[in-house]
Write a protein that binds this DNA or RNA. Sequence first.
DNA 1: CTGGTTTACGCCTTCCGTAACTATC
DNA 2: GATAGTTACGGAAGGCGTAAACCAG
Lengths: 189, 189
Amino acid sequence: MHFTLKQLRYFVTAGEFNSVTKAAETLHVSQPSISSAILHLEDVTGLQLFVRHHAQGLSLTPAGRKFVLKAKQLLQDAEGLGHYASTLGEDIAGSLRIVGFPTFTPILMPSLMKAFVDAYPEVTIQCDENHQKDLIQSLHEGRYELGLTYDLQIPADIEFEAIIEFPVCGTKQCPPTGGPGRAVPERVG
Amino acid sequence: MHFTLKQLRYFVTAGEFNSVTKAAETLHVSQPSISSAILHLEDVTGLQLFVRHHAQGLSLTPAGRKFVLKAKQLLQDAEGLGHYASTLGEDIAGSLRIVGFPTFTPILMPSLMKAFVDAYPEVTIQCDENHQKDLIQSLHEGRYELGLTYDLQIPADIEFEAIIEFPVCGTKQCPPTGGPGRAVPERVG
DNA sequence: CTGGTTTACGCCTTCCGTAACTATC
DNA sequence: GATAGTTACGGAAGGCGTAAACCAG
């Protein structure tokens, strides 16, 4: 029993208009595309979904009517999933997990977090502490989006960005931004 | 924001195993298929769903973990829709709408309906009456699955099946079985 | 003859699998 | 060197659009 979301979309809009042609215009495709999608659905379900009136559109059978309702629901859910993914990328109602190096995290984090939650109040922040090795590993495992530590032994696949430097001893104090790979700053500001 | 159910399936099983290879074996496809599906999803959502550990599988990012849950739900719904379509074809918890010709419907229907509900107790039957022209039209419109009438002026696209004949005058008294097109008897018994 | 759906067919995109490459352990 | 994920590329399949056929009013 295999069908695609596209086929459901074509079928549902055809059902809403009771017309292949209208559906084709609405979806900006040709009539045969709509028609074949419907045929395919009727094939895999074994149902007759439409009654064809050759010169004046089509109308749903009782089974088709019931099927449309559920199909519409599924399409809405699919669209909802897309929206949901967007919100995950825009940190709306998202959560940001940060892991920091113990020695200076208590000193730096409060002011950083305050500035961040002022700009993005809908983000919930969780902050833990860990030493370098475990810190790197937990970033790799995706348990945190952000780490705050020294620029020491940072693997190449973790993007590093300096926020503070200590000129006296040449050591940089800084936060590798983001989990490995894609940069986080664009996502969280 | 476009993705397919197949891509979601590939992604979800990869997430369950934390491995492209295991997912490929489970789904009987090659690794590149899984990989490209994931890449596509990461592309359209703008999210990083996995952290890649080159030599030892992959692990979901926090965003990926959340996305998996919703995606899994959608896949279950999709499968549920397929099951639902099957039940529609097997009239389980289905309804059967019959329209009969007024003169003899009150005489024939009771015994027919009794025999039917004995065989298929889970079917609810609705029975109306209408004269020939309206009867045919409502069958065409899919408002009834079955009509009970004389073998007179039955369009070619409605399947006719005789159940009683009147030898005296040569007129057949009979029920066209099923809505137009596909035969209903196989579906309802 | 008109309006609307379906079939026929050729094109193009997408998906898939094999093989080679890369990176970690 | 072994394992696992990704890239490259050639082939197959499915989806799409144009054109033609079909069918009812």
